[in-house]
Computed example of a mutant assay.
Amino acid sequence: MSQDQAAGLRQWADAQRLKQARTTDDAFVPLDAEPVSAAPRQPEWSPVAQMLEPTRQAPQKPLFIIGVTGHGVQAVSRVKSRLEQWSEIGRSWAGSPDDWDIHLVNAGAPDLARLSAQHTRWALWINSDAQAFSQMYRVLREARENGGPQRLLALHEPHLPRQGLLNNLRDAAAYYLATDLLLLAR
C-alpha cells in the first residue's frame, strides 16, 4: 500500500469515527473540527528517529516511608542507598533504586489515613543508634494514632542483626499497636 493510500484510509476512518461520535453523543462537535484519530500516527521509521526516541521506562513503584530524619534529596538518597545495598546482597524485590518512587511521610501528617488507604507499600526507616528503639516505637505509635498503615517493611542496614532492636521493635509493634513490622530473613 502506498503512502497516499494509507493516508487516505486514515482520513476516511477518522471521518467515520467522527460521524459515529456525532450520532451517538449529545455533545456539541463543531462541523469544521479536525477528525481525531484514536491512535497516534506512527512516524515513518528512520534510524535517526529511533535513536532520538526517548527510552520508555517501567512506571516507578511508590514506596511511602515514615521515620526518616531529614528532608529532601539527601533523605531520599539515603533510602535509595539502602535499597541498593539490599539489591546487592541478593534481594531481587529491591531491584534498582530508580525503580522506586520514594515518598517521605511524617507519622503525624493529617492525610496519613488517606495515604494509608490508597497505597500498600510502606516502610519504617530504622536507625541503628542507641535511641533507635524509643524513637522508632514513638513513630509507629504516632502513625497508628493517625490512621497509618498496619503493615510496614523494616527498612534498615543490611547487616543489622535481628536479635535485639529489630525483634524487640517487631514484637512491641505487634503487641501494643497491632502493627506488622516485616523483617527480612538473612
Rank of each mutant, 00 (worst) to 15 (best):
S77D: 12
F64G: 13
S81R: 08
Q74S: 14
S92T: 15
I66S: 03
F64Q: 12
A58V: 10
G90H: 06
Q85K: 03
V48T: 11
E84C: 06
L63T: 05
E84D: 11
S81N: 09
A49G: 09
E84T: 07
T69Q: 11
V68K: 06
P62N: 00
M51K: 15
R78K: 10
F64P: 10
P62H: 07
S81T: 10
S81L: 13
P54K: 05
K80I: 01
G90V: 07
I66R: 05
V76D: 09
S77M: 13
A58R: 13
A75D: 00
L52F: 00
R82K: 12
E53M: 09
R56A: 12
H71Y: 04
L63F: 06
W45H: 07
L83E: 07
V68Y: 04
V79N: 01
P62C: 05
E88Q: 14
S81E: 07
I66M: 11
L52R: 05
S81I: 00
W45Q: 00
F64T: 13
K80D: 00
E84K: 15
G67T: 00
V48Q: 12
I89W: 09
G72D: 03
R56Q: 13
P59G: 08
W45C: 00
P59A: 13
G67P: 02
S92E: 14
P62R: 07
L52Y: 01
S46C: 03
G90L: 07
Q57R: 15
A58M: 11
M51L: 15
T69K: 10
S77Q: 13
V79G: 01
Q85C: 05
P59E: 09
V48N: 08
G72S: 02
P62M: 05
G72W: 01
H71E: 09
V73L: 12
F64V: 14
S77I: 04
G90Q: 08
P54L: 01
Q57N: 12
T55N: 10
K61E: 12
R91E: 15
Q85M: 09
K61F: 11
G72P: 05
R78G: 12
S87F: 07
Q50Y: 09
Q50N: 08
G67S: 03
W45S: 03
P59C: 04
T69F: 00
R82D: 06
